[in-house]
Amino acid sequence: MANTQETLRERARILLEDGTLDYLIGWEAGRFEGQTTPLIIRTVADVDRLIYNEYCVHLLAKYPLADKTTKKIGVVVRGCDARGINLALKDGQIERDRLYLLGIPCQGMKDAQTGEELKKCRECTHRNPVVYDELLGDLLEQSAVADRFAEVNRIESLSADERYDYWADVFSRCIRCKACRDVCPTCTCKECFTDQAAKGWQGKETSLAENQNYGITRMFHSGERCLECGECERVCPKGLPLMQLNRKVIKDVHELFGEYIAGIDDCTPSPLDHYQLDDVEEFM
C-alpha cells in the first residue's frame, strides 16, 4: 500500500507540473485515525496531502461529472471507480479525452471501527481497474468471490408476507436523505423522479408508502446498471441493506438475459435498453 502512495504522489507531481492535468481527484487523511475524505489537488504543493491506504472507501467516479468546463481531470481509479467512469462515458456525461485515469489494483478497503475488510470489498468481483491510462502497481489475480447472492436467496426463500414485513421494516426506517442516490454512479439524472412532486411520481412525505415507492423505483432504475460498489449501503445513515436490492436485480438479469457486468466497457447497452426476439416468454 505504502509504495503505491509514493508512486501516486510522484506521478501526481509530474502530471500537475507538466500541465497534462488541471487537477487530480484522490483521497486525503481525515481528522480521525482510519478516516479519509476525497481530495482535489490543483497545485503541486498539495501533492503531499494525497494518500492511498486501506481506508480510501469513497467512490471517485462521480466527482468529475460536476465539472462542465473543458479542464483535464486526473482521477485515481480502483476497480469500482473504473467501472463507474465507464458508466458515465456510456451515458455521455463526460468525454473520455478529458479524463486521465490512474489505475490502482485494490486489495479491498477496511472498516475503520472493526479493522476487517469491508463487506462490499469482500464481495468485489473486479479488483483490477477495467479502464485506465496508467497502472500504478501490478494487476492482482481476481480471487473467487463467495456467493454474493446468499442474502438475496435467503430473503427469496421467505414467504411473501415475511418478505413484505422484512422490507416494510427496512423502509420504515428510511429518512429519504437521498445519500444513496447522490453517491450512486448510475444516478446522473438532472432532476430525479423523487424530486418531481408536482408531476405526481413521489410525494415529499416520509411515510412508509412513499419510502417504499422511493426504494423500489430506485431499485428498478439503478439495479440493472449497478456496479456493486456497495457505496449506497456504506453511506446510508440508517444502515439499510440496500445492496440486497441491487443484487436481486443482478441475479434476475443474469438468469433472464444472460451475464451482464455493468460498466465493463463504455458501449454495451444495459439489459433494458435492448431486447432479443427469443427472450424468456412468461406472458403468453
Binding site: 413484505y164 428498478f220 436481486k248 433472464l256
Partner: peptide, 13 residues
C-alpha cells in the same frame, strides 16, 4: 415486466 414482476414479488406481493 419480466424484471419488475420479480422485484414486486421480492418485496412480498
Amino acid at each position: 415486466m419480466l424484471l419488475y414482476r420479480r422485484y414486486l414479488e421480492y418485496f412480498g406481493i
